[in-house]
């Protein structure tokens, strides 16, 4: 009896609170518009050309503030960079070495198996230099960030300069449609024609945003192409095996069932 009453009360409560929850969600959730990506879906694969352009954007622009600690220069073979190009790239980065004989810090040219050089010596130093908030590491950013690629693209193209008339203005902060509160300390990173792609693709803000988003998704999930490919073969093999196994099982059990 008791239970029934409670259940009824519960149903009533759920019924009553349903409109409340829709009302409560007044600040519309930031769901970025969906973009079409080559790497989407269970069969998606990365476009290596886009990844290479995206790495260029990351290397020239993002990496001045954001680290990507989990990757080594060698990992870039995954976006189709040649061994020599990786060697040259690593060599062009000065990496902190061990203290010298008099205890002074040293630096040395990078090697292919060095991890990506971090722009700041520590998170604390980064926070101190960047207005209190350390720029997040980008190794897995595209996985951690809700809506991953779609959000990254929307965010990178979502700066409004000047901000809309009704937006609050805070010195040192920038207006972006896709962050909570619409204000962020990170200045708009991309500009039209800021870099030149060697393959001749026009470097518009949208193009750069697309490319660097692809690169960030790759960095967060570098084996996606191989994973999808291997997965397809494994599934085909298992289906073949399943057909055989079912036939074998049926044949075996017929002796019991048919009697």
């Amino acid at each position: 009896m008791m239970k029934t009453t409670r259940l009824l009360a519960l149903a009533a409560a759920a019924f009553l609170s349903a409109p409340l929850t829709t009302l409560a969600a007044v600040p519309e959730p930031l769901v970025p518009p969906h973009q079409k990506w080559d790497f989407d879906g269970p069969f998606g694969q990365f476009d290596q050309k886009a990844l290479q352009r995206g790495f260029m954007v990351y290397d020239r622009i993002c990496s001045t503030c954001h680290g990507m600690k989990a990757l080594t220069y060698n990992d870039l073979s995954g976006i189709g960079m040649s061994e020599q190009a990786i060697l040259d790239l690593a060599h062009s980065k000065m990496i902190a070495g061990p203290p010298d004989v008099s205890g002074q810090p040293t630096s040395r040219p990078g090697r292919p198996d060095d991890h990506f050089r971090s722009p700041f010596p520590s998170d604390e130093a980064a926070a101190a230099m960047m207005g209190g908030v350390a720029p997040p590491d980008q190794s897995r950013l595209a996985v951690i960030q809700p809506h991953g690629a779609d959000w990254l693209y929307a965010f990178l193209t979502g700066y409004k300069m000047p901000p809309p008339a009704d937006a609050p203005v805070v010195p040192g902060k920038f207006y972006n449609d896709w962050v909570d509160g619409h204000l962020i300390g990170m200045p708009p990173p991309l500009m039209n024609g800021m870099i030149q792609y060697p393959d001749g693709t026009p470097a518009t803000v949208e193009q750069q945003a697309r490319d660097v988003t692809s690169f960030l998704v790759w960095a967060a999930d570098p084996h996606r192409t191989a994973r999808h490919r291997t997965g397809l073969w494994v599934v085909l093999y298992l289906i073949g095996l399943l057909v055989l196994a079912i036939a074998w099982k049926k044949k075996t059990w017929k002796r019991v069932k048919s009697q």
């Binding site: 095996l241 055989l244 196994a245 036939a247 074998w248 044949k251 075996t252």
Partner: peptide, 8 residues
């Protein structure tokens, strides 16, 4: 059955 079993 043997053949099917062996292949499987």
């Amino acid at each position: 059955r043997d053949f099917l079993g062996m292949v499987t």
